[in-house]
Simulated scan of single mutants.
Amino acid sequence: MDQIKIAVIVGSLRTHSINKKLALAVGKMFSERFVLQRVEIADLPLYNQDFDHDYPAPGILFKQAIEAADALLFVTPEYNRSMPGVLKNAIDVGSRPPGSNSFAGKPAAVIGTSPGARGTALAQQHLRNVFVGLDVLAMAQPEVTVQFQEELIDEEGRIGNERTQKFLQGFVDRYSAWLIKTLAA
């Protein structure tokens, strides 16, 4: 496998989302062996089982983007101690109809940032629980729950804190090595 394609799914629709900034910053840390492609979720309709026989075009495009990837990177905020509804909706769209789970068998990692002291730990744990039902293999460590502060990451994805830069690079290095090993198996 020459290049490894990673689908990046950000669980926020906000224009100036701090998780979009985190995804951008982390994306710049991967070596050239990895190609990261952000998969948008904003245009997905709310999942409805009536779609199972006539899937809407945005759902089909989303599923195709996930299927084209070798691996997944979820970057999620935490809303009310869980993942945002828009992210859960994207998962529901991508895993349906029965027998066509686009996530199945993919290796994944979860990261996130929030202004709160615990970061996105609970949202990430809930997402990992959902991975079991999706047949997604989740990298267990390191957990990346960044407490976001003003000017930590700018609009261009530059990190303004050396300690955070090293921490995130450590995650990227470990995720990269884990993906190479996992995908070779």
Score class of each variant (00 low, 15 high):
M1P: 06
M1V: 03
D2R: 05
I4Q: 05
I6W: 02
G11P: 03
G11N: 06
G11D: 05
R14T: 08
T15A: 13
T15N: 13
T15H: 13
S17H: 08
S17A: 05
I18W: 12
I18T: 13
N19W: 07
N19C: 07
N19H: 08
N19V: 02
K21V: 00
L22W: 10
L24Q: 12
A25R: 01
A25K: 02
G27R: 02
K28D: 06
M29R: 07
S31N: 08
E32S: 10
R33K: 13
R33E: 14
F34W: 04
F34T: 00
Q37T: 12
E40S: 11
A42F: 00
D43A: 05
D43T: 01
P45I: 09
L46Q: 09
Y47I: 00
N48M: 01
Q49W: 00
H53K: 13
Y55H: 06
A57G: 00
A57L: 13
P58Q: 10
I60Q: 13
I60P: 04
I60N: 04
L61N: 10
L61R: 15
F62P: 01
K63S: 11
A65E: 11
A65L: 05
I66R: 03
E67A: 10
A69K: 03
D70V: 00
A71S: 06
L72Q: 03
L73A: 02
L73Q: 04
V75Q: 08
V75R: 05
Y79V: 01
N80D: 08
N80M: 07
S82M: 11
M83D: 01
P84H: 09
L87M: 08
L87I: 03
L87N: 02
K88E: 06
I91K: 08
I91A: 02
D92T: 00
V93E: 03
G94D: 11
R96S: 04
R96E: 03
P97M: 11
P98C: 09
S100D: 14
S100V: 00
N101R: 11
S102F: 02
F103G: 07
A104M: 12
K106N: 09
K106A: 04
A108C: 07
V110I: 15
G112M: 11
G112Y: 10
T113I: 09
S114F: 13
G116M: 14
A117G: 12
A117T: 15
G119H: 09
L122C: 12
L122R: 15
Q125I: 05
H126C: 12
H126I: 03
R128W: 12
R128I: 11
R128G: 06
V130F: 10
F131N: 04
V136S: 06
A138W: 05
A140S: 15
Q141L: 15
P142M: 11
E143A: 12
V144Q: 10
T145L: 15
V146P: 09
F148N: 14
F148W: 15
Q149E: 15
E151I: 01
I153Y: 09
E155Y: 09
E156Y: 03
E156F: 03
G157M: 04
I159D: 07
G160W: 08
G160A: 06
N161E: 12
N161V: 01
E162W: 04
E162D: 13
Q165G: 00
K166I: 02
F167I: 06
F167E: 10
L168S: 04
Q169L: 14
Q169F: 02
F171S: 03
F171E: 04
R174T: 14
R174V: 05
S176A: 15
S176Q: 14
W178L: 13
L179G: 09
I180C: 15
A184S: 14
A184K: 14
A185Q: 14
